[in-house]
Amino acid sequence: MTTTELIIQLLITGLANGLIIALIALGYTMVYGIIELINFAHGDVMMLGCFLALTIVGLCGGEQLSPWIALPLLFLTVPFFTAGLNWSVEKLAYKPIREAPKLTALVSAIGVSFVFINIGMFWGGLPMDVFGGGGSAASAKSFPDLFGWSNLLGEQSAVLLTPRDVMVAAVTIPLMIGLTFFINRTRMGTAMRAVAQNPTAAKLMGIDVDRVIGLTFIIGGALAGVASVITALYTGSIHFQMGYRNGMDAFTAAVLGGIGNLPGAVLGALLIGLVRAVMEGYVPNGGQWSNTVVFALLILVLVFRPNGILGSRVREKV
């Protein structure tokens, strides 16, 4: 494999990974932008989405299911489920304590995350699991391989571009463009930006702040749902602890880019995806160190830019 081919291969893997992380990171950063809360449960909402996807595919025939039926089916069900889940989390766990100090909500979010992890463990461990990667709750479940590993660039090409890479890009990029349009051009998007800047003032201007916050959680949840379908199909393996892993990456991406900043989250996610691809595909023994490198990178960036790469400096009012 020549150097150019290697670089292209790393770019493909890195961008595909990065785009998935970006979808989750957008959910984190939108919620943070509006209510300044690290929604720890977000990654676990995505994890539950994965288990729902597994159940649906399992009920509909598993491996035999054509991707042309599976994809629309999953995209029409899972995002609704995760959006609803995220919305109810907000209503039940965060809304009642919105006036309390920030730490209160953060701890509550960690609590929700623990509850979801437990649900995921039962979901994976009970007879409900249709493929069974072992009977015990703790083991990873394999997700049916709907796409195969054929190389779209032809079998003799050294660079591997699989249908799943294309699927990731084809789903995530339009979604991100749509989200940008929604935030910047529509009335509801303007309302969201207004609430993010100053909830009190927005309320005085007649914006229904509760509705806007609810909508933010719905959009974030739906993005997490899409991400869960893509992740399950892309990696082919799901686990009840994966919410934490993926959530961690996504949250790091959001902080790296400047939390609350949508383009920042995408930028951070792509950066993390690329770093992981390089570590796993190029550096010998790099895979086991990729977490360390990602977090070291985060700490480094924050030392020199305490508000992230694209974050703006916040001045304290004296």
């Binding site: 609590g111 463990m121 009970l126």
Partner: peptide, 28 residues
């Protein structure tokens, strides 16, 4: 038996999580 639901230690996270949520709600 063999049922994961019937092992109390499998409910650990659920109980911790609910305790945290309730705690923050009632006595932050």
């Amino acid at each position: 038996g063999n049922n994961v639901l019937a092992t109390p230690s499998n409910w650990k996270f659920m109980i911790f999580g609910l305790a945290l949520i309730l705690m923050m709600r009632l006595r932050p």
